[in-house]
Amino acid sequence: MKISRNDRDGIAILKLEGKIMGGPDADLFQTQVKDLLAEGQNKVLLDLGKVSWVNSTGLGILISGHKTIENSGGSMKLLGVNKRIDQIFMVTRLNTVFEAFDDEADAMASF
């Protein structure tokens, strides 16, 4: 997984690319979240448009990041969830945890 960051209108947009599947991905994402919070940035939009799939370990990474950000009083929302990932969210009911958007403008306006 690769992560690139682009801040806009007070929101950190993290673009994730590849597969979210544990191992080094967990450290990479947790470090990114910690860095954001250390800067006082707790509004985070995760762009998953270039993520092909997530396994259950990858779900854990997303849940962990979501919890950390929510506990800091901020929010983490998702953009561009593909059908396969959405299928996993539906089965695990994580669609009730993650607020997801198809349109970036709608996502930005929701913070």
């Binding site: 259950s56 370990t57 779900l59 849940i63 089965v91 695990t92 009911r93 994580l94």
Partner: peptide, 15 residues
């Protein structure tokens, strides 16, 4: 039911 929503592990077999 689906595993506890806050759990970070243990969804593989459920899936």
């Amino acid at each position: 039911p689906a595993p506890d929503l806050t759990r970070t592990r243990g969804r593989g077999i459920f899936l």
